[in-house]
C-alpha cells in the first residue's frame, strides 16, 4: 500500500513538472510565431536591405535555438553529447556556407 501511494505521489510530481514544461513550450511557440511575423513585416515593409537581412537572420537563429532548447529538450539533463554533436555540426555547417558564398567565383 505504502509503495503504491508513494508512486502515486511521484506520478503527481512528474505531472506537475511536465505541465510546467508545457507552459514554456507554449510561450516558446508564441514567440516563434511573433518573430516570424516581425520578419515578414520587415521584408514587406520595404526597409533598407542592410537593416533587414541581419535582423531576420538573428531572428531565425533565435527561433532555432528555441526549437532546439525547448521543443527538442536540449536544455534537459543527459543532453551533453547531443549538444556537442549538434554544435560541431553547426561549426562544420557555418564553414561550408561561408566558403560556398565567398570563395566560389561568384
Amino acid at each position: 500500500m505504502a509503495d503504491n501511494t508513494n508512486s502515486n505521489y511521484q506520478d503527481q510530481f512528474f505531472k506537475e513538472k511536465h505541465k510546467e514544461e508545457m507552459k514554456y513550450q507554449v510561450i516558446t511557440f508564441a514567440m516563434m510565431i511573433a518573430f516570424t511575423i516581425i520578419a515578414f513585416g520587415l521584408v514587406v515593409g520595404d526597409f533598407s536591405k542592410y537593416l533587414v537581412v541581419p535582423i531576420i537572420l538573428v531572428l531565425a537563429v533565435v527561433q532555432v535555438l528555441f526549437q532546439l532548447y525547448y521543443f527538442m529538450h536540449l536544455n534537459q539533463k543527459g543532453h551533453e553529447m547531443p549538444s556537442l554533436m549538434i554544435f560541431s555540426g553547426v561549426f562544420a555547417a557555418v564553414l561550408t556556407i561561408l566558403a560556398l558564398t565567398t570563395i566560389t567565383w561568384i
Binding site: P82, M85, G89, A93, T96
Partner: peptide, 28 residues
C-alpha cells in the same frame, strides 16, 4: 536517442551544403 541526435548533427552539414550551393547559385 543518442544515435538519432548524432544523425541530426550530420543532417546539419547536409543542409548546409544545400544552403551554400543555393546561395552561390541564387539568381544565376
Amino acid at each position: 536517442f543518442m544515435g538519432f541526435w548524432f544523425f541530426l548533427g550530420g543532417e546539419t552539414v547536409l543542409f548546409a551544403s544545400l544552403f551554400g550551393t543555393y546561395l552561390a547559385l541564387k539568381n544565376s
